[in-house]
Design a binder for these strands. Sequence first.
RNA 1: GGGCGAAUAGCUCAGCUGGUUAGAGCGCCUGUCUUACACACAGGAUGUCGGGGGUUCGAAUCCCUCUUCGCCCACCA
Length: 932
Amino acid sequence: MSISGAPESTSVIPPDDFPAQYDPAATEAAIYARWQEAGCFTADASRSARIGGDRQPYVIVMPPPNVTAILHVGHGLNGSVQDVLVRWARMKGLETLWLPGMDHAGIATQNVVEKQLAAEGLSRNDLGREKFVERTAAFVKETGGVILQQLKSIGASADWSRAAYTFSPELSVAVREAFVRLYERGLIYRGHRVIHWCPRCLTSLSDEEAEGQETTGALYHLSYPLADDPTKSITVATTRPETMFGDVAVAVNPADERYQAMIGKNVILPILNLPIPVIADDYADPAFGTGVVKITPAHDANDFEVGRRHELPMPIVIDANGNMNEEADAAGRVPPELRGVDRFEARERVVVMLERAGNLVKKEPHQHSVRHCYRCDTVVEPRLSDQWFVRMAPLAEPALEAARTGRVRILPEKWVGVYEHWMTNIRDWNISRQIWWGHRVPVWYCKECDPPQNVIASREDLTACPFCGCDVVQDEDVLDTWFSSALWPMSTLGWPNDESTDLRAFYPTDVLVTAPEILFFWVARMIMMGYAFKGDAPFHSVYLHGTARDTQGRKMSKSLGNGIDPMDVVNLYGADALRYTLIAGMGLGSDVFLDPSDLDKSFATGRNFATKLWNIGRFLLMNVGSDDVRPFAGLKTEELGRADAWILDRLDAAIRECDRAIGPMKPADDMWRPEELASGLRLNEYAETARRFVWNELADWYVEANKARLLTAGDDQQVARSVLVHVFDQALRLLHPIVPFVSEALWQRLPGHVDGTFLATSSWPIARDVAADERPAQFELIKEIVEAMRRVRAEYAIAPGKSIDAFAVVAPATRRTLEEEVALLGRLARTTLGFVDTAPEGAAANVILAGGTELVIPLAGLIDVKKECEKLSTELTNLEKQLASLVSRLENPGFLARARADVVESERAKRDEWTTRRDLLRTRFEGLCGKA
RNA sequence: GGGCGAAUAGCUCAGCUGGUUAGAGCGCCUGUCUUACACACAGGAUGUCGGGGGUUCGAAUCCCUCUUCGCCCACCA
């Protein structure tokens, strides 16, 4: 198939400049390069109205992907959403900044490098801290940042000149500043307590990093004999019998009748034969298990609290690697045969030992949540240690208020409740990690000074104690990666330098787009830090998008092997196909389902749409040519045909709908009004509206209606060329944020395109404000007539080549204005259409259109009269039934009294229309089929 | 265990504050290579809007309840 079949006179575009088949691979990279050369995505701080410029700023900070990450569909989804928003804002004339960057991803990156070392038979300790950090930095420098390149190939219009990195010198300054300020305000403290410990990563984790997984384990009932009467015993229930060596007490509820006599007595810890006290504490729940809980303060966060309340010792019996071992306060507690044994292995063996000793009462299956390391999935071990914490309650207060007052809008709204719940029950944040890759805790210890002077948090590296001048040592720990991420919107713009141009021009930012999983990891903490250091929220909107899932609803992941590589999609169908499919397929907050085994089907929507768009462009260029086009603005209203008036009307409607779907860009006066909290950011509605306009209105009707006009030289041809080019130009603008490449490629080829201008930086369409006129409605009538004729043809299986005659019975005034236009459109249905005042006699297909217009198609010899009668009969019956129910509604006093006036009005209009139709149908029926 | 959300065409979902003959994409059926497009065009079929109650003149839409799925949180060992 080539365009050689096209009439020579209109074939003005050489095939090599406008291939018949859209080729994204050949188009996209070149276009992206030109955008970058032209600086289309580089934001100019001096234009921000906040520092005296002429434009409102619009800023999105990109959730920084891990520096080692490779693009997956989740990133594709996230990036596409942000890119749609920033491209939209840019076209709306705002000074738009999409600030990209990467996260050094402490534990994750360290794990990658440690794995490499392991392959060489080395551990990080073999290298030592300094060498290890050097090696990791080199690895990151060498291989990191792949994902940023990949984001470019999906069209991300980020300002790469501002790309940031959480571990850069600049951002490290911000991290230190934040730490020291919080420390000085008493919001960071060092605590000795039970935290989540990953025995594989050998570091502590925050509550959020230790993810619970429902697991079927066992609940073991163990009997601990009484010290003063070994014939009696008390039964405790536990899921972790191996921790018994760390038991220092058993607790019962003070109100529990059953155990009143035991409180204060001692029981004997089996195997070890150690006496431990029975204590009373509210923590013991009489309703759970036996009502008795063993207390292991060093290996359970709750037991730790109990231990503190009762001033109990806290022996550690499991070491950092998760093996049974005697550590602090545990001398003689771990039996020699278990020393060095893995905790799970030990569990089995302890159970056997207890069983032999007769202390195992029973074992029952038990469902409970076991926490795993979010980076390596190892079962987390609660461990007693010294860690740094952030006091969260004071920080959470303004952040919570922000969501309540409308300063920050969270979409979809269902997350607001989750956010509130978390914020009101917030717990302190463990920010220290026992790894090497990350921001080292900026705290130095002096051995000579007395507390509190011996602990110094400092913005500068210290070599000597500022108080006594002697040597100091820096804390060994590094900070949680998320501590630096929490500062992201500020630190990337220049904070802590409050005078920084970018910070003044672009902070606070506008929308944060991310996945709901990291609402607490990241989003909530950014809001808190924003208030803590800048006194304001870092953005006014949080958009939480869905997850990419496979056809079985499973989350796409590397480990499951059910992922889709976005680069495959880009290579096969182009970035636009990927973007359109993702954006159109994702309702607010709902997940996107894709079939990894059938990319062709999964991305058909986007691919087909890009192709369609390309073909409209081809038609336009082949038929409009490259000769000068009359400027649209110079056209007089009366020069426009009905089709022109109609498509312009549809365009205005589409523009309005798209604007409404994406929603208000910013809150007025920095506060969302209640009714705005749930509105906007419906990107799928925007995509659907734009698609419908371009495909179903522009291509299916306007282009078809214009074919004849464009071939007939004259004034009207010039009008048609002008309107077509204008409407397509506007349509490309409307679509550009979703499908930037193909729209740009086409826009650059439009007649009259000025070299060096880009669709990416052109203006967003504005709906006209014009007086209503009757022509769009008249075109709708033509459309209906054509559709009716097609239906009749299909129904009676009239051969495609065979022309038929039809008559439309319309009001004389309308008829006069319709005739010429319908003549042009007649070919659409291969029908000769005439207009008459009354229907002709004889057999005919009869269609009643909206508004009471009757279409009569005399089909002598073509139709089966009996079939037609049956059809008329059922149509008539249905209509009468519907009409009856409508009439009864309109006669219902309750309805008339309570329904809104406009509803009543429209119901009445509908009744009148249906009545007319019913009468026409009845006449037709009686004429054709007789009274029978 | 607490909280939140969802259930609409074979599949993925729209249907906003109650009033439409309940929609879209993909899939399916029937025609068509009509000079931009077969990744297309034209036409078509398919839904007791999860079950049951209720409020109302009127419910896919509001309330209650049940069922089934998701998600978030949680110290019941």
